[in-house]
Design a protein around this nucleic acid. Structure first.
Lengths: 188, 188
DNA sequence: TTCATAAACGGGATTTATTCCCATATGCGG
DNA sequence: CCGCATATGGGAATAAATCCCGTTTATGAA
């Protein structure tokens, strides 16, 4: 969910609360009956027309199943804009040697995420199901060669090629004997 | 706007028409009065409960200021998933030597876009206004050094660093004397 | 061509969702 | 303790989309 830059803390809370509600698919009425807060108040809250009392926030957090501190954290958390190469978290699968480096890790305020992946030569990695269906992927080959199969269709990629797809089913990544594959993956 | 994968042509048209309407900020009523089509029909159209007649589509296209063929193109256009390095369009500013290569060009069906940019040494590029405000950028340095100023804040980037920001104001890109800058830019 | 069936369409009522208005309550500073 | 600003709840009003039903139009078979 994209949102315009906010200024005051109340506005940040407002948009966050609205997102929380809509994430559940609830209407103001739904939330009102569950939380015991009138929908009028909820409406004004989400439009940041009033500054909510802590008692009220506590009730809301209760129905949303999150702690007050977590809500505050969600709101305050100003994501780190710059992530140095040295600070990027990497994860390696020791079985296959597959390396996944998080260049731009997920944040509650951003919709996109960037990874750098390295697959050693002569390796096949298959995902039966996507973590979340319909995610948009842009894959940019940096180095080496890679065959991937998306929804049954095979693609042969070499350096500089770019493949876009919306992942809804299984996917398979395969490197040839003589070459690894290093690529950037932009997910949103 | 993200959309789940569609199956039938009517569903594709439906979501596209809805997007067109909402892009203008129009309600069903607004569009109804402008196009001379009842909002009931419009509602059913956008829910793909009926298959629109061509006469009706023509009226709609007229109010949306697009040709019927263009609408059909928008709908049918199945974006090219694979863009080979050799096929990627590049644009070069001969004044500054700034090169911009479109790795994953914009498509009506995708929200993200990928660019590879190269700025020669000792060059400064300044944008007073973003093309569209609030766009989310993920910049990954590939090679060289770059100083950029986003909303007044300066950042020094070297190979492998990643900078994320939502562009709302001016931005400035500057390379040092001794080094160019090559980077990937993910925009959504 | 004609008839039968199915589907699209328009008008208006209905439902759903949010915002506005006003009265009441609750803090907070002097 | 008083007064003022502000939050809150109830309910009315508005906004927006959907549903229902009668009418029209297209399509296909005889």
């Amino acid at each position: 969910m994209k949102q315009a830059p906010q200024t005051t803390i109340d506005q940040q809370i407002a948009t966050r609360l609205k997102a929380l509600r809509q994430a559940q698919g609830w209407t103001l009425d739904d939330l009102a009956s569950q939380s015991g807060i009138s929908k009028s108040t909820l409406s004004r809250l989400e439009k940041a027309e009033v500054s909510p009392t802590t008692a009220l926030l506590a009730k809301l957090c209760a129905t949303h199943q999150i702690t007050l501190s977590r809500l505050m954290h969600l709101v305050e958390a100003t994501f780190e804009p710059l992530i140095r190469r040295a600070d990027q978290k990497t994860w390696k699968d020791n079985e296959t040697g597959f390396t996944r480096r998080s260049l731009s890790p997920p944040t509650s305020q951003l919709d996109g995420e960037v990874l750098e992946c390295i697959i050693p030569p002569d390796t096949t990695i298959t995902y039966a199901q996507p973590p979340k269906t319909g995610l948009e992927h842009h894959l940019v080959m940096q180095e080496g060669e890679l065959t991937l199969i998306i929804a049954g269709a095979p693609y042969e990629l070499t350096q500089g090629d770019c493949l876009r797809y919306q992942l809804t089913g299984s996917s398979s990544f395969q490197t040839p004997r003589h070459s690894l594959a290093r690529y950037h993956l932009f997910i949103l």
